[in-house]
Structures are given as C-alpha cells and as structure tokens.
Write a protein that binds this DNA or RNA. Structure first.
Lengths: 213, 213
DNA sequence: CGAAAGCAAGAGCGGTGCTCTTGCTTTTTC
DNA sequence: GAAAAAGCAAGAGCACCGCTCTTGCTTTCG
C-alpha cells in the first residue's frame, strides 16, 4: 500500500500499475495478487484512504477554528480541503475527477466520502443551532419533488433548514469542488496568479449567501 | 475520427485504444499512424471537437433566448451546457475531468475551450451594457493582486464590472461545472431524483447573486 | 512428524502504444 | 512515356499492461 500510495502520488491513478508496485517492493507481479484481488481493489483501497485523509483534514480545520466567526470557520474548512487537494492532486482527481475506465466505486467508499461534506455542513449546522444564521433572503418555490428531497437532506444532518438554505449549501459545496477541480486541471490558467485569494474570496461570498457572518 | 468519436462515446477516453479504432475501420494498427501522430494527438482532436460542440450548444442557447429575462437566458444557457454534458458524458469528462496520464493539453485547445465560457459571460455582459444588472450588494476588498487580475478579466470581455461582479461570475461558473461534474460522476447519488430541478434552482440562485433578474 | 496452509515465482494469454521495415500503388517529374 | 518520388497499408517486433494457472518452497498447525 505504501508503494502504491507513492506511485499514485507520482504518476497518478491511470499510470498506477500493479506490476510496477510489485517491482518496487521486489516481488513478481503475480505474487501481489495474493494480497490484492485486482487493480481495481487496489484503487478502491487508495480511494478510501484518500477520502479519510481529506475528511479528517476538513474535520480538523472545522474543529480548530470553532472559536472564530462562523464565516471564518467556513472559509478555514474550505481552505483545508483546497490545501489537501493541492498537496495530493492525484488523490483528489482520483476522488473527484473522471472515474477510471470500467471501475465503479463500491459502497465501501461512500461512507468515508461523506466525511468532508459533513465537516463542511457541520459549520453551517452549528451556526444555525446557535441562531447565528442570517435567514434566507426570500423563500422561493423550487418544485414539489425537489422541495421534498431538500427537506430530507436537511433531516439527514438533523437541522431545520429552509429549502433555500439547503440549496445555498449545495451551491457552495459544488462551487468549492468545482473551483478546486478547475485549479488542479489548470482550467483557470491565466486568470489569476493568486489562486488562494480567488478561492478565499469566492468561498467567502458563498458563505455569505448561506447566511454565515 | 468517426470511429474514434464512437468509441469515445462508448468506452470513454481511457478505454479508447488506437488499435481498436484501427480494427473498426478495417486497418492494422500501424497504418493509422500515418494519419495520426499518436494516441495523444487523437485525443487532442477529440477534445477540440468536443469543445466546439459544447461551445456552440451554449452559444445557440444564449442566442435563442435573447428576448427573455436576463435570468431566464442565463438559466437556459447553463441548462444547455448541462444537457450537452448528459448527452456526451465521456466527452464532458474528457474536457473537465481528470487529465489523461502524461497528456498535457496543447495550446490549440484553449481557444475552443473558451467558447462556452464566453457564451455564459455574454449573457451577463449584455445585461450589464443594457443597464439591467442589479449592482453588487457591497464592494468588498479582495486584495490588491486579485483585484488587479479581476479587473483584467473584466477588460478581456470588454465590460466595466466591479471586482465583486467578476467574482460572482467566477463563482457561478465554477459552481455550474462543479455540479455537472458531481452529477456525472454520481457524487450526488441519493440526494435527489430531480437533478434537473436542482440544477435549475442553483443556477437561478447564482444568477440572482450576479445581479441578473 | 506429516498434513495443510501460506507464499512467491515462473510461464503464458491477450491486450496496449509505438517503431521500423517491406512492399505495392499512385502521383509527380523529367 | 518512363523513371523517380511520394503515399499508403501491412507485418513483425519491442516493452508494457492486467490477470490466470501451475510449480515449488516454507511456515504453521494438528
């Protein structure tokens, strides 16, 4: 696993070969099949490790900045995710980039995958419980089906939030990962040299829209 | 190229093999190297085609809804991008997902890559020129370096926009592609059954934040 | 002590991208 | 019109990949 992690960091998920990790640990390729069922299972293990890694990074940030402003805490947690992504670009793309060829992530991966999301939502949740959340500007109509789903999502995290509030979080959530992905895949090239400031400003704006202050 | 496009749609970018497209057109693998320099060049051509495809889809939507509300036009353009992504998931992930192993997108791809972004920004630009854009709630300080870059970005599209306005667009832009990516990679599984409504609502919210109405 | 299990190696299958050489056909040039 | 040049497709081959199956050695267990 160490060798696999190292290779993932160096050549990325698609360049990771079972044969080369076997070579690195001084084994013949067929021998490693005793320990790992297939290349896909190796990837699955790496995915779970990566989810746990980014998840605990986010949790730690949320925990560590608990005494600050809700908005600052939100920003700190988001920045922790971005920092992790910059430090482990291949791991990040393995989690949030294109899925590998015929690979379908097994159910083992969804639980650790929710940790980072829960860390982010916990910031919002704490603010809501403490009554520090600025109420949504105006409740809009989002359609019956979606409204039902949004209510269920709020129930999942045990918070009484309006549809608009849940929607604001989903927007902030996807914006966060969208920008990180764009930064990693160089899609924002030439736009700015100060990616950290750009990220910070957009997350602040999204946090503001969610009612944090 | 037809065969390659077909294979890309079926098995995705990482599953696309030069040998198999050679088989499909009744050639031996070495023969196709006369027409394409490498697998990477084949991918580059597919990328450019895809960028043009999604770009014209967005442009057409922006053009077709020019008589509606700015907000409705924005939503329509964004929905066009999403529809294209759902129809061509592998192409979308080739453009906006993880980059292929050692592949670095050549400069030929950046020009067609900007079309879809320009189509989106044109909606905002037209609204601003016509004076229909609600001014940004409060101009915040984003730092000197970022502020300079944001001003340059506004100049690129020849519009006199505040830093906060440019930032709002960047947030909306990344949110859009973030959500589409999450939907395609099934990261939103179990959250809602009505992905279209979710997308529409978040895009409307982001459009509202940009000052569209 | 012997049987059973664990472990690593080797050979091999079909697949990949890519290169180089060999021919044949078409086009250009004189 | 013949000769030279260019275009084109095939074949063999290299190193790599994931994966399977068999063989043999070592460790553990009954």
């Amino acid at each position: 696993m160490e060798a696999a992690r190292r290779q993932l960091a160096e050549v990325g998920a698609s360049g990771l070969s079972l044969r080369s990790v076997a070579r690195e640990i001084g084994m013949v390729s067929s021998a490693v099949y005793r320990y790992v069922e297939s290349r896909d299972e190796l990837l699955t293990r790496l995915i779970i490790e990566a989810y746990d890694s980014v998840g605990s990074a986010a949790e730690e940030a949320a925990r560590h900045h608990v005494d600050e402003t809700d908005l600052d805490r939100w920003i700190a947690t988001a920045c922790a995710v971005r920092s992790w992504a910059l430090e482990h670009p291949h791991d990040y793309l393995l989690l949030y980039g294109s899925p590998v060829p015929g690979y379908a992530a097994p159910d083992d991966t969804v639980a650790p995958g929710t940790r980072v999301t829960f860390a982010l939502v916990s910031v919002l949740r704490d603010a809501a419980i403490a009554g520090r959340l600025r109420p949504a500007s105006m409740p809009e109509d989002h359609g019956a089906e979606l409204s039902h789903d949004l209510g269920q999502l709020a129930g999942l995290v045990d918070v009484d939030a309006t549809d608009t509030a849940v929607l604001a979080f989903l927007a902030a959530w996807t914006q966060l990962f969208g920008l990180i992905g764009f930064e990693l895949t160089n899609q924002t090239r030439g736009m700015t040299t100060d990616h950290a400031a750009l990220f910070r400003s957009t997350t602040a704006a999204m946090g503001h829209h969610m009612g944090l202050r």
